[in-house]
Design a protein around this nucleic acid. Structure first.
Lengths: 208, 208
DNA sequence: CTACCATTCAAACGATCGTTTGATTGCCGG
DNA sequence: CCGGCAATCAAACGATCGTTTGAATGGTAG
């Protein structure tokens, strides 16, 4: 059960707990009663502060995506400034901010899982929301990859980026079989994940 | 809305529609009332034929997994018989049966999505069920990969296979952004997906 | 102190959930 | 022709869902 952080405001406690429970049980599977009970707030607080469950879901995304997008674009800009940049640098600019976010905040690790779940939901409304708030970042990265992979035509590049996105989402969300061992810290486990991902994806993208 | 195939038995109609709706809305998101209405059967038929919703979910898996596992192991055995086999052959033995299954049957395409959803669900009971009915196949493939990738130690290999599994699941479930164009048949779209996947994964696995 | 306003609260709303019941159907062996 | 049995059916069960209501609370500006 997710911790209810007593020092935080009602609104923030709801967001934090909702993030964790959505990650664990899905959007349909986690009820507002479970969320408010774990957050130690009144049931009606969700509709008072957010209007509806759907708006709460969107707010869970917006809170983290704003920050994540900013960091990703900044990291990409820093990489682009280096004329000697390689594929691994651009991949790192995409992965590292997600990695850092999942360390900083208590629920950050859960958010990566929530993001992965959103992909699994074919809900049209949710996909549109993500596309609106996320699409321009993906497009900038696609352009950066295109410049480093001139041997791939546009269609081939899109195919591969789609695969990369899937692999990234999956691995960062810990959907796979690999379990973190007890003698490895959460931090170094995620760092290892990112490192393996980047190496793998770079090789896949470079394939003739 | 999924088609209710009038010629099939009540039991089979339920399984087919459930597969489609679970793929589209998730296990918690698709209700038995939606399933039975679309299948044009009585609501009580689910509990009569399957006992519970959870048992229905398991039966949706069992029906296709039995066949899929058989075909994958057969394809792997065929590949292993060839001394000149390469990485792409083993990857093909894993991907092709899923590809063919998604063509043969009406709901086969949906099943790949259901399988991907199951990974996103962190439900312990469901993961155990999948591990029991699926684990030995994954282990056989892991051994086959290990023989072809002697430069990777055991841990490194597991990391990469985990990434490959994620990429495969994601891409085959069409979770990504790439949309099938109208002038491309469903069949050739999935064949293209598989082909790109295999090429990408082979390069990623071969990375030094 | 009082009046206000944002917030919290217990309680209830109607809808929908998975499941169960008991009657009804229709086929099939004797 | 009839008894039995698997299958289907309408209806209802209690539980839980997201949401709404109206009163209680508590701090703050006038």
């Amino acid at each position: 059960m997710p911790a209810a952080q007593p020092n935080f405001s009602t609104r923030e406690r709801i967001l934090g707990v909702a993030e964790t429970l959505f990650a664990r049980h899905g959007f349909a599977g986690a009820s507002l009663r479970q969320v408010t009970a774990a957050a130690k707030v009144n049931l009606a607080a969700v509709n008072y502060h957010f209007g509806s469950k759907e708006s709460l879901i969107e707010e869970v995304f917006r809170r983290r995506l704003d920050e994540l997008n900013r960091h990703r674009l900044a990291a990409l800009a820093a990489v682009q400034a280096n004329p000697a940049r390689v594929l691994e640098d651009v991949l790192g600019a995409f992965v590292s901010p997600a990695l850092e976010q999942s360390m900083d905040s208590a629920g950050g690790a859960a958010f990566v899982r929530v993001l992965a779940r959103a992909y699994a939901e074919h809900d049209e409304r949710l996909r549109r929301f993500l596309s609106d708030n996320y699409g321009h970042v993906l497009r900038e990265f696609a352009a950066a990859f295109a410049r480093l992979l001139p041997h791939l035509d546009k269609e081939e590049l899109y195919w591969r980026l789609d695969i990369v996105a899937g692999a990234l989402t999956y691995a960062m969300a810990d959907f796979g079989m690999i379990k973190r061992k007890n003698d490895v810290s959460e931090r170094s486990h995620r760092e290892q994940t990112a490192q393996h991902l980047i190496r793998f994806a770079a090789a896949g993208l470079r394939a003739p």
